[in-house]
Nucleic acid binder design. Structure first.
Length: 495
RNA sequence: CGGGGCGUAGCACAGCCUGGUAGUGCGCUCGGUUUGGGACCGAGAGGCCGCAAGUUCGAAUCUUGCCGCCCCGACCA
């Protein structure tokens, strides 16, 4: 294993791939386009899941589980939805193998052909709405607020670990409501949950917006998204929330009796975030020394590295540090005391940096004598010596807790500054073409037509990431066609 | 699906042009010296060279076919 990571500035995608591998997050699997998420990477995903799940529960949702297999006839029911996903579906056609009569191995048993093919879910709207038909009769059954944590498969032509894999993990919320207004509120609420999660937990600033019809989810009336800017100037869609109208209720005949005793189709939403967030997390904060994790999502928040020359020294350091380790744990800080003997301290420093551990404490015999600990922070790579009372380390631990909060805030601010410095108001087509080559968010006027959107994409590879929700209307002229425009939209090249 | 690259020890690679039965670094095992930013010395273990066929006295090396992976594009979260 070579020591240095590729530099972001020289080869961004190689840098990304190397971080994923070297920080022990995941690896490519024997199956094309699929990944093995390793324990350290999965621990980060679990922390994301926990935080999101708590937020879903706090907003009244319950978890459930629906099947992996979707009958083909289900997928066909909503026409746009079917068209949107048809090109990337894995299909199960048989249910049995048998010994190869012509030699070794197994072959598909031609007698075991399924009457109806099963699609491996690319998303679960159809199976879920088929089930909802049986669950919803009256307005009293609504709203129905369900989420599921699951894997899905989308047979992508080209994959990138975490960012786009053939199989990925995600959560998908599927809700049913009695009124359009309530469903729209839900769509917005969950978008807000995602934005809150991205900013407070991942320390990643996002723009909330609505997709253009061209970028909309197949089968949705409206698709909302959070968009983040990566360090190479490309945009990444980090989460989506869809207002589905009555499309799926109509397709699956889900009607309820309202308070006026009239039959009505239910109103739907769906929303999801995936293991793609892992990729976003890496690309938002990490540097040429490796991963940088926000403390709130770091599996190990504080690592303690004893520095010693003899087993006696180590025993002494371990004894002195025991109260502090106990106090850190008592304060809810995840701490690892690395007293393993097969690596030296210098090696450990580099390794934990690569893995993005926010705070490292170094303790040697000198510290024990002086009553100090070396405190190193991953975000700034700075070190300082702090005084500590080893017997009652409460005050020191309070300081560490504050430091973790400060790091969380600092990496958010750093990402926010980066985004601000890479967001440009663009008013001419020449400027647009020049700036898009350099990357960033381009705020430009657009005439609202899909023709213009398509031409811009064709000529520059830039897409409209979203029409931002939180920006004021300000009339102007379309950067491409010169026609009237009500407000600026966000253009970027995207992952 | 197009373009490019690569399959040799756990990992990263050399060897292939010019066929003669496999090597380097890291890692691993054992022993010793070390230990405040990726230690050093010594001794070891570990490979039907992606698969299959062909040429040849002899193939990691030459020929043909197949399989797989990665990167760049078109499609997508």
């Amino acid at each position: 294993m070579s020591k240095a990571l590729p530099k972001r500035s020289e080869n961004y995608s190689e840098w990304y791939n190397e971080i994923v591998k070297r920080a022990d997050l995941a690896e490519n699997s024997a199956v094309r386009g699929c990944m093995v998420i390793k324990p350290y990477g999965y621990a980060i995903w679990e922390k994301m899941q926990r935080a999101l799940d708590d937020m879903f529960k706090a907003t009244g949702h319950q978890n459930a589980y629906f099947p992996l297999f979707v009958p083909k006839s289900f997928l066909e029911k909503e026409e746009e939805h079917a068209e949107g996903f048809a090109k990337e579906c894995a299909v199960v056609t048989h249910y049995r193998l048998k010994a190869n009569p012509d030699g070794k191995g197994l072959v598909v048993d031609p007698n075991a052909k399924l009457e109806e093919e099963l699609i491996i879910r690319p998303t679960s709207e159809t199976v879920i709405w088929n089930a909802y038909k049986g669950w919803i009769q009256s307005w009293r059954d609504l709203p129905l607020l369900i989420n599921q944590w699951a894997n899905v498969v989308r047979w992508e032509m080209r994959t990138r670990i975490f960012l786009r894999t053939a199989e990925f993990l995600w959560q998908e919320g599927h809700t049913a409501h009695a009124t359009e207004e309530e469903a729209i509120d839900e769509t917005h609420q969950m978008l807000g949950v995602y934005a809150e999660f991205a900013e407070s937990w991942m320390a990643m600033p996002v723009i909330q917006g609505v997709k253009t019809p061209g970028e909309r989810f197949a089968g949705a009336e409206d698709t909302f998204c959070i968009e983040a800017l990566m360090q190479d100037g490309k945009a990444l869609q980090a989460g989506t929330s869809h207002f589905l109208g009555q499309n799926f209720a109509r397709s699956f005949d889900v009607q309820f009796v309202n308070k006026e005793n009239q039959l009505e189709y239910a109103w739907a939403t769906s929303w999801g975030v995936s293991t793609r967030l892992m990729g976003a997390l890496i690309m938002a904060h990490s540097d040429d020394n490796g991963l940088v994790l926000p403390p709130k999502l770091a599996p190990i928040q504080v690592v303690i590295v004893p520095i010693y020359k003899s087993p006696e020294d180590l025993a002494k350091i371990s004894e002195k540090m025991a109260p502090m380790i106990g106090e850190l744990k008592a304060k809810g800080i995840s701490v690892k005391y690395d007293d393993s003997d097969h690596q030296r301290s210098g090696w450990k420093f580099a390794e934990y940096e690569l893995r993005g551990v926010p705070v490292r404490l170094g303790v040697g015999m000198r510290d024990i004598e002086n009553g100090t600990v070396e405190v190193a922070r991953r975000d700034t790579l700075s070190k300082e010596s702090r005084g500590v009372n080893f017997e009652s380390p409460e005050e020191f631990v309070v300081g560490i807790k504050l430091l973790l909060d400060e790091i969380q805030e600092n990496i958010f601010n750093r990402a926010m500054n980066f985004r601000e410095q890479n967001t440009f108001l663009i008013d001419t087509w020449d400027d647009f073409k020049t700036q898009i080559e350099k990357g960033g968010f381009l705020m430009a006027h657009w005439d609202g037509t899909s023709e213009t959107e398509a031409k811009i994409k064709e000529e520059t590879k830039a897409t409209i990431r979203c029409i931002p929700l939180l920006s004021a209307e300000m009339a102007g002229k379309c950067v491409y066609s010169g026609k009237d425009s009500a407000k600026r939209v966000v253009f970027a090249r995207a992952y």
